[in-house]
Simulated scan of single mutants.
Amino acid sequence: MFQGASCETPQEIINIAATAEAFAVTLLGEALASSERGELPLNPEAVGTLRAARAAEQAHFDVLTGAGAEPLTLTFTVPDPELLANPGLFFETLVALEEAFIAAYLAAAQQFAIQGNAEMVQLALQIGAVEAEHRAGARFFAIEAGALSGVPNDVAFEKALFGSVGEAAAALEALGFIGGSGTEISYPGPGEIDTTGVSNLEP
């Protein structure tokens, strides 16, 4: 479905970004619903953090689609059912996903800079910075669950993992979150978006 070309059009970039944001909203919604059912044991602080992260991802999705983005899919897959039952596995996976999102927005910012699109460079950096906050939050709870060690804010520079935004999307496919054989989940996932405590809902 996705191509990892090194030169992407603005439309291709925002389409892929909107797809990733839709996935994030959906996965976080499923995690919160699993917690409410008692299947994914989360403390109140973790629940509040995930609700806020979901609201931010929805805000990103809204801005991207408002700019003309068309998600490539709104149906995703959960490759391992334990992901929504084991807090350590969930947060460790969320850290890896956030690292992919951060790297995708770094690649997007680079592409937009090459194209001379300063407004979209700013948007990519604004979103990527929030994804980095989400990574640190996920690391905090992964450490608390014993899945990771160290400190939540453990990097001085984020990793530039991809040369294109398409490479990030291809990584989600390879991990089984898009077009995989696991349980299908659909955007926006269960439950309402709760923006309590979240500000700057527009760039």
Rank of each mutant, 00 (worst) to 15 (best):
A56Y: 03
S34L: 02
P71V: 08
L94C: 02
Q115I: 04
E82I: 02
A129V: 10
A24K: 02
V63Y: 06
S186P: 00
E98V: 07
G179Q: 06
E92N: 10
L125T: 13
G180V: 10
E70P: 00
I13W: 00
L74C: 09
N117H: 08
L27Y: 05
A136W: 07
L97F: 07
L161N: 05
S149A: 13
F112V: 07
A168N: 04
D80V: 08
I185S: 02
A145V: 12
A20Y: 00
A168T: 06
E21M: 06
N15G: 06
F90P: 08
L123V: 12
A100P: 01
D194T: 07
L125Y: 05
G179W: 04
E98W: 07
T9W: 08
A33S: 14
S6Q: 13
I114Q: 13
V47W: 03
I193E: 00
A67G: 11
R139Y: 11
P152M: 11
F23R: 04
A174D: 14
E30S: 09
A171N: 04
G163W: 03
E167W: 03
N86T: 03
E133A: 11
E30F: 05
P203G: 14
I185E: 02
E39G: 02
A147C: 11
E45W: 04
A171T: 15
I16E: 02
V63P: 00
S149K: 11
A132L: 10
V121Q: 06
L94E: 02
A136K: 08
F112H: 06
L28R: 06
L94I: 01
N200P: 00
P81V: 09
A22L: 12
A109C: 08
E133M: 10
L40M: 04
I193M: 03
E98G: 05
L125W: 04
G197A: 05
V47G: 01
R54Y: 04
G137F: 03
H134N: 07
E70L: 13
Q115Y: 03
N153P: 00
L28C: 01
T49C: 14
T19S: 07
R135M: 12
A5Q: 11
E192A: 15
C7D: 13
T65S: 05
G4S: 13
L89Y: 12
V165A: 03
V63L: 14
I13R: 00
A22V: 08
H134V: 10
G38N: 05
A17D: 12
L125V: 15
E57A: 11
G29F: 07
I13F: 01
K159F: 11
T26F: 03
F157I: 12
V165E: 00
P79S: 07
I127A: 12
A104K: 12
E70Q: 15
N117F: 07
E192N: 12
I178P: 00
V151E: 11
A174V: 07
L42I: 10
A145N: 08
V78N: 02
L148N: 03
F140R: 15
V25I: 15
E12T: 15
Q126I: 09
S149F: 07
Q115L: 15
P44N: 10
L40E: 00
G4K: 01
Q3A: 09
T196S: 15
I114N: 04
P81L: 08
F140W: 11
P190W: 06
V151I: 15
A169K: 00
A103C: 09
D194V: 14
L175E: 13
T77E: 03
A107N: 01
M120S: 12
A53F: 02
A31Q: 02
F91I: 06
A33N: 12
K159N: 13
L32D: 00
